[in-house]
Simulated assay, not measured.
Amino acid sequence: MPVPERPDGGKDRRSAVLIAGPTASGKSAFASAIGRKHPAVIINADSMQVYRDLSILTSRPTLGEIDAVPHCLYGHVDASETYSVARWLREAEQAIGAAWAAQRLPVIIGGTGLYFRALERGLADIPPIPESIRLKWRSALREEGSVALHRILCERDPQTAASIRPSDSQRIVRALEVLDTTGQGLRQWHGDHRGARLLDDRVCIVRLLLTPRRDQLYQAIDRRFVQMIETGALEEVRALSARGLPSSLPAMKAIGVAELTAVIEGHMSLDDAIARAQLRTRRYAKRQMTWFRNQMASWSAIERPDPSQTESLLQSLAL
């Protein structure tokens, strides 16, 4: 287990554990094992687990897990809202500060790499987007679609466009809004970070990246989606679909929502829906692993998390 640097040698320094990894890699179980050994608060860093309507499909912690170890930033956002990195950063900083005030160890876990990057590097101070520009690009998305807007972004800001998939309508629209508002691309803005306010050199940090073997990860993904169906995922999507929310909302794009909606509407068999959702999840996990390898090369990699490792981790933090 890695030993974090303690430049001032003090025993009263604040500590934090960051655990990143692809979906279904065992992050939650490992974090819970830490929480059973030492007073901790588990703080979510997954962009889909924030949505209240998606407990099963996003594998949110169970009530038993939450009773055993306090959890924050899970299921606190309605599916009708668009949750942002900036909002997560504000709420995560508050949760981390509250954990330290209560003399608990903040354990930040998730698969959304942008959240971890924002936590450690901060966010650029981008000005507010005027409502006229916001409406302009929202309307363009409805009329032309994300692929057409991505082509526009490629012409105007190729550097940012290269980092966004043509199907990622939310990020494409955001990039065009920022470009219209400021005359500067998102990639340029992201190069000008304000300092992170909590996880700086005064904090003793362990950074862990779970890197399971791909074949084992894919098997876990496939098993987990079947378990989701067995524990009520179809009913969960039925309730969400009944709300009639726009398909452009992030919660409506969660893997499994479109597939199970097709089952409910009689357009797809359940077996086909399961197979398609499993394939989408495997592809998503592959993209996550690529991002982590490129952006978190300095993190300590663990192929298979072992709860017994928590003892040495806590010792490295002098807890």
Rank of each mutant, 00 (worst) to 15 (best):
V3W: 02
P7I: 10
G9Y: 04
R13F: 05
S15W: 04
V17F: 04
L18H: 00
A20P: 10
T23W: 03
G26N: 10
G26M: 03
A31C: 10
A31E: 03
R36Q: 02
K37H: 12
H38E: 00
P39F: 04
P39V: 00
V41G: 01
D46H: 03
Q49K: 04
R52W: 05
D53N: 15
D53P: 12
S55W: 07
I56L: 15
R60D: 14
T62E: 06
G64F: 06
A68N: 02
A68K: 03
V69G: 07
V69D: 01
P70D: 08
H71L: 09
L73Q: 02
Y74V: 15
Y74E: 09
H76W: 05
H76S: 11
D78W: 00
S84A: 07
E91K: 05
Q94A: 15
A95R: 02
A95S: 13
G97P: 14
W100C: 01
W100P: 11
Q103Y: 06
R104P: 10
G111I: 08
E120M: 07
A124K: 03
D125S: 11
P127N: 06
P128G: 10
P130A: 05
I133R: 00
R134G: 14
W137M: 04
A140L: 14
A140P: 09
L141D: 01
E143P: 13
G145S: 08
A148D: 00
C154V: 14
C154L: 08
E155Q: 09
D157C: 07
D157T: 11
Q159S: 15
A162V: 09
S163A: 12
S163K: 06
I164C: 11
S167V: 14
D168M: 06
D168A: 13
S169L: 04
V178W: 00
V178Q: 05
L179G: 10
T182S: 07
G183P: 12
G185F: 02
L186T: 13
Q188W: 05
D192Q: 13
R194F: 09
G195P: 15
A196S: 12
L198Q: 01
L198Y: 01
L199C: 15
V203C: 12
R207M: 07
R207C: 13
L210Q: 09
D215F: 12
A220E: 03
I221E: 03
D222M: 14
V226C: 02
I229C: 04
T231V: 15
A233N: 08
L234T: 00
L234M: 00
V237G: 10
S241R: 05
G244H: 01
S248H: 06
S248L: 13
S248K: 05
A251N: 03
G256L: 08
V257G: 00
A258Y: 07
E259F: 10
A262R: 06
V263Y: 02
M268A: 14
S269D: 08
D272G: 10
A273G: 07
A275N: 13
R276T: 14
A277V: 06
R280S: 10
W291I: 13
F292Q: 06
R293P: 08
N294W: 09
Q295A: 11
S298D: 13
W299S: 02
S300Y: 06
P307W: 03
S308T: 14
Q309E: 03
T310I: 09
Q315A: 13
A318Q: 11
